[in-house]
Amino acid sequence: MTQKKALIGSRIFDGSDWHDNAAVVFDSGKILGILPVEQISSEMEKIDGGEIIAPGFIDLQVNGGGSVLLNEEPTVDGIATICAAHAKFGTTSLLPTLITDTFEITSRTVAAGIEAKQQAVPGFLGLHLEGPHLSLARKGAHDPKLIRPMEDEDLDLILSCGLALDALMVTIAPESVTPEQVIRLASAGITVSLGHTEASYDIARLYVHAGVRTVTHLFNAMSPLGHREPGMVGAALDTGSLYAGLIADGIHVHPAAMGAALRAKTGPGKIFLVTDAMSPIGTDITSFTLNGREILRRDGRLTLEDGTLAGADIDMAACVRLVHETLGLPLEEALRMASAYPAEAVQISGSKGLLKPGFDADFVVLDASLHVQGTWIGGSCVYQP
């Protein structure tokens, strides 16, 4: 029989409310509740959590970390390294993300993801396949030679992966995927996301009707908001059912644009934070390779030699600090953007994203300046500085 544990914090945010001088009580990887400190029984193991305890961060777009890029190491070990690298920054669940690649690499990634689930790799939530079924006109850093329409074998592979994983996100563009294919993906419980597309407002809405649920890195690599053609950005903000990822590094999107989008977004769909992180996270490396092309790390930016942005050099805790400190969002809303809202986006909000009874015991411990002091996954401390 395991011993109940109580993680004590000066302040605890459960996803809805704050609790002062309280403890998260958990056992066997699940949360039992939040109690005032004076109600903790002597039978419980007491653990000092520090200033702030909040739901663990959930990142739905993570290309790499710890010197590993998923495209270059589509293995269980590669996935485990990426998850461990981001755990240092408070991320307790993530979707390792495969950038546009060959069918062979995609197949290897799918196999590795299924094995990672079987091995219960800490922090592994599922996969995000970002391409190759995108628009050449909005390719960004994706290799144009590898972008192509979705064929039957692609669809079958994705469907098989969706059945095996707890969460699967697929970024597609209407230029390369039909509404009928989206219907099949969405019907299988796969989170279909629009991104890297020139789609008009009306086309985007058509694909939402087919089952699209999210938008990949809002503003980046998509048709912009215009006063006569609202574009993909307009559809994302105006369509209540859509959730949208946002890279909050101050480089991919100007803070003023972030603030405008947050004020304009129609619900119940929310804007949530993603890092779009690459292999340098948690390291001091200054360059790496993607599809045979060198990516340079300079002054907080990751770019191809021609200056095209290629992912982001930021962690989730830093994203939370930016939207709280630079945009002035209340701390609880900044924390929800990194936990509750991404959980809702991929439909796991019944088990993750909140500190509620029955939820997974995934927490991040922060100091007063919102730097990570501890990360817990499934009731186990996986990082402490």
Results as ranks from 00 to 15, higher is better:
10 S>G: 14
20 D>A: 14
25 V>A: 05
29 G>Q: 10
34 I>P: 06
35 L>N: 08
38 E>G: 12
41 S>G: 15
42 S>G: 14
43 E>T: 15
47 I>T: 08
50 G>I: 00
51 E>F: 09
55 P>R: 06
64 G>E: 04
72 E>N: 15
73 E>R: 11
77 D>I: 10
78 G>A: 10
83 C>L: 09
87 A>M: 12
101 D>I: 03
102 T>G: 02
109 T>V: 02
112 A>L: 04
114 I>Y: 03
116 A>G: 08
117 K>G: 02
118 Q>A: 15
118 Q>H: 14
119 Q>V: 07
124 F>T: 00
129 L>V: 10
132 P>F: 03
133 H>M: 07
136 L>N: 09
140 G>T: 09
146 L>S: 04
152 D>V: 13
154 D>A: 10
155 L>I: 09
156 D>M: 12
159 L>G: 02
167 A>W: 04
168 L>D: 01
170 V>I: 11
184 R>G: 03
184 R>T: 10
185 L>Q: 05
186 A>E: 05
187 S>I: 07
188 A>G: 09
200 S>D: 11
202 D>P: 01
207 Y>D: 02
210 A>Q: 04
210 A>N: 05
216 T>F: 06
230 P>E: 07
231 G>N: 03
233 V>C: 05
237 L>P: 02
238 D>F: 10
240 G>K: 04
245 G>S: 15
252 H>T: 09
255 P>V: 03
256 A>L: 15
265 K>L: 11
266 T>L: 15
267 G>W: 10
272 F>C: 05
279 S>H: 06
279 S>C: 14
289 T>K: 12
291 N>F: 08
294 E>H: 14
295 I>A: 00
299 D>Q: 11
301 R>N: 11
301 R>Q: 15
302 L>K: 03
303 T>I: 10
303 T>W: 06
306 D>M: 07
310 A>R: 01
314 I>Y: 02
319 C>V: 09
321 R>M: 13
324 H>A: 13
325 E>H: 13
325 E>G: 07
327 L>Q: 07
328 G>S: 11
333 E>I: 13
334 A>N: 08
340 A>G: 00
343 A>N: 04
346 V>S: 05
348 I>T: 12
349 S>I: 00
350 G>L: 08
350 G>Q: 13
353 G>E: 02
353 G>F: 03
356 K>M: 12
357 P>F: 08
358 G>I: 05
360 D>P: 06
364 V>E: 03
367 D>A: 13
371 H>F: 11
376 W>A: 01
377 I>D: 01
377 I>K: 03
378 G>R: 06
383 Y>C: 02
